[in-house]
């Protein structure tokens, strides 16, 4: 980073803090054989269990299983999703930070059930914390931590919880 676009000043406002812990409306996404294959191909998997339903069944799954980091792969609907990141934009908690740059900070997924193609999941998201830090290379940065809960619509069980940090600066 040469740093010409660094933020010198950035403060958390009450308006930003008010977004913390606001739960988004639930949105639905389907896991499909095509979406699992596209993800597995994008990563470079060669294990047939993620591509071939017969191989998946032979390995003990109902259908193609979602690879362990699949969640976060959204269903895109024009006008209702982010054009860049493809996730839902409607009704989502968001921070009006005005910072021009974005980097991913970290991701953690906790699974309680195996999700497979054919499953439909209800997803809710909330921001769980906002933190301001400063570094020499990025200047002031805002670290937004979100928690996303994936509920299997058929069993009504929470199948997975994902926590992510996004850094804006």
């Amino acid at each position: 980073m040469k740093g010409q676009n660094m933020a010198k000043e950035f403060e958390l406002t009450e308006e930003m803090q008010a977004q913390v812990d606001k739960e988004s409306p639930a949105w639905t996404f389907e896991l499909t054989t095509t979406s699992v294959r596209a993800f597995a191909r994008g990563v470079g998997y060669t294990d047939p269990v993620y591509f071939d339903v017969e191989a998946a069944k032979a390995a003990g799954y109902r259908s193609l299983p979602a690879p362990p980091t699949y969640l976060g792969t959204p269903v895109f609907i024009p006008g209702r999703s982010s054009d860049t990141f493809s996730g839902p934009s409607e009704g989502q908690p968001s921070i009006n930070h005005g910072l021009p740059n974005v980097l991913d900070g970290g991701t953690e997924t906790e699974y309680r059930e195996t999700l497979c193609a054919g499953d439909t999941v209800s997803v809710t998201t909330k921001i769980t914390s906002l933190e301001v830090k400063e570094s020499k290379s990025t200047g002031k940065m805002l670290i937004t931590t979100t928690e996303t809960v994936y509920k299997n619509q058929a069993t009504e069980n929470v199948a997975a919880v994902q926590r992510s940090q996004v850094i804006t600066f």
Partner: peptide, 30 residues
Amino acid sequence: HGRFKYAALGELVSNWLGHKGFVRKIGCQY
């Protein structure tokens, strides 16, 4: 993509596991 590297770590673990178990939790920092 940070998430590509996360997914590559997922592939590392799933290749090793060979479907003889279940990934309960997986996380990383970029």
